[in-house]
Amino acid sequence: MNPLDEVRSAWASLASEINAAGEQQLAELRSRFLGKKGEISGLMRHLGALPADEKPTYGAAVQALRQMVESTLDRFQEQLRSGALQARLENERLDLSLSGDRSEPGTLHPLLALRDEILDLFVGMGFEIADAPEIDTEWFNFSALNMPDDHPARDMQDTFFLEKDSGKDSVVLRTHTSNYQIHAMRDRKPPFRLLHCGQVYRCDADATHAPMFCQVEGLVLDQGISFAHLKATIYTMVRALYGQGAILRFRPSFFPFTEPSAEMDVDCRSVGLDRDGWMEIGGCGMVNPNVLVNGGIDPESFQGFAFGFGLDRMAMLRHGIKDIGLLTAGDMRFLRQFTGLA
């Protein structure tokens, strides 16, 4: 056997050993065969003794052997490494069904989130958001809105009175958001489009009435503003809130501060409720000239419309809330449900 064949067979005899080899043995084999003084390098020493015509063939055969050994050792080494990595990763496996480190998700209040939405809607329609006090005098809450002292309309609204300093106009918790109309008119000059949203109070409490509830009110004043403009604005608003399919009805009604006055009803089925008939959503009308005068505005120069509606029932319908008392109870089990109200 020539030395080349000897080395070949020596390598071939190691096949099973290589299969079982660890990193250490593979390094030894690499050194034994491929090292500078290794067996394959040693074969080249025989090159000089060969006849010239055999030299290229022999050289190529040695080189082929080197490559074969090298690639085999490389392959086994790679297998070893990836196996070890695999084992490590397996060992480090975690149960990702468990929750991450986090606090419970926080939530926004369903009524106040709806309020945000309504405000955005009206800002988008070009309305300025106005502020108003919740504590006011009877004049701003009633008289200025064309509800004089003995007006039966005052019976419609059970009013909370506050202890007052003697000699002053009676102080009340406002019974509606309409008091903002007078404050707003006194603070600005028309034309304007205004919206106000806030809490109001009435002596009334049962499953559908709370002594405090939330109203939203709009006021538009300019020259030549008409009932037709009111209708178009309300349609736009109601469809933005309840969907394009909402069917709306204007029904003659009575509010001392508007003339003509209307109540707005939506068709229950058209807004996704599972019942027939109409649902009252709010009131509206052309601002009564007396109210304009009380706001310091000349009714011959400016006219306009006002509208208002309650938010509590809208929030209750939207979220399937049955008891209005839950809205102000601060119950974590209730509040935690309203995720996703960004």
């Binding site: 926080g106 926004l108 209040h109 509040l335």
Partner: peptide, 21 residues
């Protein structure tokens, strides 16, 4: 007020609305 409310809600708190009585 809106930004404040979101800052607290994002820290795991529930927004409430108290009866102002």
């Amino acid at each position: 007020t809106r930004r404040i409310r979101r800052a607290f809600a994002s820290r795991g708190l529930a927004e409430t609305l108290s009866m102002r009585l």
